[in-house]
Amino acid sequence: MNSYLNGFLFCIAFLLSGSLLSLSAQEYGGITGMIHVPTAEMAPEGEARIGVFFLNGEFLPDRIAYQGTKYNTTNHFLAITPFPWIELSYVCTLLKGEDNKGEVGYNMKDRHFAVKLRPLKEGKWWPAIAIGAQDPGRSVPDNGDYAYFQNFYLAASKHLAWKGHEWGVHLAYRYYRSDFNIKWRGIAGGITYRPSFAKNFRAIVEYTGNDINIGVDCLLWRHLFLQASLQDGRHFTGGACFKINLLGKKKTVRKEKDVY
């Protein structure tokens, strides 16, 4: 328990600097979510995002390893919300391996698309519902070697307000086709919290189906989004992205009367 508390305080210290403005949160692949677990939340219509994340080896699929040893890496992504009911993302993850000269380095890449659709918007008596997928078009060989991130999910999100504080409850079912990702196959979920005194700040606790992750995120100067998290309370993963609304729309903070 101490490791989770110390890690949570570390994440807060990492992000609480500069002027904070309103935000919408991103998961590591550019699609709106928590940390590793998807939600039914959506970014504002017209929002485009470009970002980079440091990914701890323990955060990644077990098949991403070099000579049997997992390693840390980075990814970068380009994402957009063309309509309020759909998000799209293109993700590139660096992989370690040998090049044609036998030199070891991050000289390989895994590229994939991600998509999320929200057929049901959140209402007073019901949650928002979304369906999504990472790398949906890739065929999976018998050993699943190259389908590192492929999964399909159904997510629900409901927000509640109490004295200006906002609580989000999120539940998801994910199906990873590759057996080496079986630890994340099934039920996942988490809780998010926005305090009344900083609506642009969010704390996260999530269960991936295998690990408990904690983290925080925020937006600086309207465009710079930061997220810091600890996988299982020990392994740091975090990143940043630049956000801009191509339609000129500004993100508005939900008032308590708008949260059910």
Results as ranks from 00 to 15, higher is better:
K121N: 09
P84N: 14
E41L: 10
I86Y: 01
R111P: 04
D110V: 02
K124H: 09
N100M: 09
T39P: 01
N75P: 05
G68Q: 06
E98W: 08
A65S: 15
L95W: 04
E87A: 00
E103D: 14
I86M: 10
C92G: 07
E41F: 05
A48L: 14
G102K: 02
G68N: 06
K124Y: 15
E103I: 02
P44I: 03
E47Y: 09
G105P: 11
P119N: 12
A40K: 01
A65P: 03
G105I: 14
P38Y: 00
N75F: 09
C92T: 15
H76I: 07
M108C: 11
A114K: 00
T93P: 00
I86A: 05
F54I: 09
L95Q: 05
K109S: 02
F54L: 08
E41Y: 10
E58H: 09
L55P: 01
Y71D: 06
E103T: 04
K101V: 09
K101C: 09
A79W: 00
H112S: 01
F53D: 00
I80D: 03
N107V: 12
Y71V: 00
E45W: 09
T81Q: 01
G102L: 06
E103K: 10
M42I: 08
T69Q: 15
W85Q: 11
L88E: 01
V104G: 11
I50H: 04
F77M: 06
P38H: 01
L88A: 10
F83G: 00
E122W: 03
Y106M: 13
I86W: 02
L60N: 03
R118E: 07
I50T: 11
L55C: 03
L95E: 03
N107L: 05
G46N: 10
K121A: 12
E41A: 09
T69S: 14
V104F: 10
W85M: 12
V91K: 01
F113G: 03
A65K: 15
F83H: 14
P119L: 13
T93W: 04
V52K: 05
R111S: 11
K116E: 00
K109M: 13
I86R: 02
Y71F: 15
L55M: 12
I80M: 08
E122A: 09
E98I: 08
E47W: 07
G105A: 08
V104H: 12
I64A: 04
E103A: 13
Y66L: 08
P44E: 06
F83T: 12
